[in-house]
């Protein structure tokens, strides 16, 4: 079968930033917290491949560490969404039409009424700003997304005859959900996971930009953009580079998601064969 070009391209694009993020854990060209006011706003050179920012910090190092923050926040937020949302969605589907289903779905609607920025505002107003806020805010927003996707997909699997056969074999709702439902909706969850991952990167950038996310000295792409705003006209490099990093990472993840969907969708697979 044909390998979707989108999947390859997207994975390659994302891999660049993932590797940069992982590498930043053990090595960056310069320490990201080291200020060198004397070197500030220097153009790209052999020492500083992409130049330095307004505080003299090395841009390459900042972007690498920024990738780490973005990816870590978005990934943990997806983790929260899956860990809480999928079981809730599966439970709602297993008990469809009951009070439990109603409670879970109304709870979902309630959380949906709070955009992640609003959750972040609430958390920050009460606990003060930090990168953990961003994880929590985006993570909480992801919970109903995954719950809804899991429930919707599970509802299409439940009426199928192999589920009835499993019930005739005496299996309970929890076992059926784990053994029969989950594997059959995993494709959709993986695709949704990459979408939420890319949305998480965007959301983290937005939150850091307005000061509700990662706090100095933790580098993040959103903060770098906020810092660069005043220098944009004079030093466009400072704002263009972090922005392009965000675009590339998100683009890579979205292409991966689309490619995965084509790759995993059994309807398409049947059509290809």
């Amino acid at each position: 079968m044909r390998w979707p070009i989108q999947l390859l391209l997207g994975s390659a694009l994302f891999a660049v930033f993932l590797i940069a993020a992982l590498l930043s854990l053990i090595w960056t060209p310069y320490p990201v917290t080291e200020l060198a006011i004397a070197d500030k706003l220097s153009p790209p050179s052999a020492d500083h491949w992409l130049g330095t920012d307004h505080l003299g910090r090395d841009m390459v190092s900042m972007l690498m560490a920024g990738a780490r923050t973005s990816i870590a926040v978005a990934l943990l937020a997806v983790g929260i969404g899956i860990a809480l949302g999928v079981p809730l969605g599966l439970a709602a589907a297993a008990r469809r039409g009951t009070l439990l289903d109603e409670v879970i779905m109304r709870g979902n609607d309630l959380v949906f009424a709070f955009p992640s920025l609003v959750i972040a505002i609430l958390i920050t107003a009460v606990f003060g700003p930090s990168a953990v806020n961003a994880i929590l805010a985006i993570g909480i927003f992801n919970v109903p997304v995954f719950a809804r996707v899991a429930r919707g997909a599970a509802l299409t699997v439940w009426p199928r005859e192999f589920i009835l056969a499993a019930r005739v074999a005496g299996k309970g709702a929890a076992l059926i959900s784990a053994e029969h439902i989950l594997p059959n909706i995993a494709n959709l969850l993986v695709v949704q996971g990459t979408i939420q991952f890319s949305m998480g990167i965007l959301a983290e950038a937005g939150l850091s930009y307005v000061g509700l996310g990662a706090q100095p000295p933790t580098p993040s792409w959103g903060r770098m953009l906020a810092d660069a705003q005043t220098f944009f006209y004079a030093y466009p490099r400072l704002a263009l580079l972090p922005g392009l990093c965000i675009v590339m990472t998100v683009l890579g993840l979205n292409l991966m998601g689309d490619g995965l969907r084509d790759f995993l969708d059994p309807r398409l697979r049947r059509a290809v064969r």
Binding site: S198, Y209, V247, L255
Partner: peptide
């Protein structure tokens, strides 16, 4: 549109 989705609006 793929590109449009990836661009942060504030940037």
């Amino acid at each position: 549109t793929q590109l449009g989705i990836a661009v942060p609006n504030f940037w």
